[in-house]
């Protein structure tokens, strides 16, 4: 059995199990930690798919920055309250599970019809990645996708400003008594 096959069959069950764990955990912190496990598994898949740059970005951005932000907000809002698991909508759970099962079956059938389960990745990706994955991505990014790249910079600025606007508390009106006290 080739090595990347072994890696796949070790990490695929872990990633699915951690996703199910995130789904079932009552405590939000536990769910977030399961999600970190899942992100690490996806990073490993990027590695065996010959995408080492995305492997690094996945760990730094997702498992690092985004999950720290999530855990920070979970702590800010209080961790002890468990999720209310009572369902108020009629037949929501059975319908959701049926929809999920149908969706998985549909994807399996579509993949079998589209690319087939025997198709291996063609050799020659090293030539695409010449001289290295990061340099090759930089070439594509700054040559073919330069305008979208600039657009993302605007997006990040807008997102940062939006977070500050949403996050600030409204300034309280100064009362007459405080005004007197300030004047001394």
């Amino acid at each position: 059995m080739p090595l990347d096959n072994v890696v796949f069959w070790v990490f695929a069950p872990i990633s699915v199990a951690s996703a199910i764990g995130m789904l079932l955990m009552r405590n939000a912190v536990h769910a977030a930690l399961f999600l970190v496990v899942n992100f690490f598994c996806l990073a490993v898949f990027y590695l065996i798919l010959d995408a080492p740059f995305l492997f690094a970005v996945q760990i730094i951005v997702y498992a690092g920055a985004i999950m720290v932000l999530f855990l920070f907000v979970i702590m800010l809002l209080g961790v002890d309250r468990g999720d209310d698991l009572r369902e108020r909508l009629f037949a929501q759970r059975p319908l959701a599970l049926a929809l999920g099962a149908g969706f998985v079956i549909e994807i399996v059938l579509a993949v079998r019809a589209g690319i087939g389960f025997a198709t291996k990745a063609p050799a020659g990706f090293d030539a695409v990645n010449e001289p290295g994955n990061t340099q090759a991505i930089a070439r594509v990014l700054f040559r073919d996708y330069f305008f979208p790249f600039e657009a993302t910079s605007i997006l990040l600025i807008v997102a940062a400003v939006a977070a500050m606007v949403l996050g600030q508390r409204k300034a309280r009106a100064v009362t007459q008594a405080e005004l007197e006290a300030m004047r001394g």
């Binding site: 990347d4 796949f8 699915v16 789904l23 999920g100 998985v104 291996k120």
Partner: peptide, 25 residues
């Protein structure tokens, strides 16, 4: 690389479905 590409796509579909179930449930 000897792992068929379809395995990754199906795994991606399964993870997407689990995410959808999380949103719904």
């Amino acid at each position: 690389m000897r792992t068929p590409i379809a395995y990754f796509v199906v795994l991606s579909g399964v993870l997407f479905t689990l995410g959808t179930l999380g949103v719904l449930l």
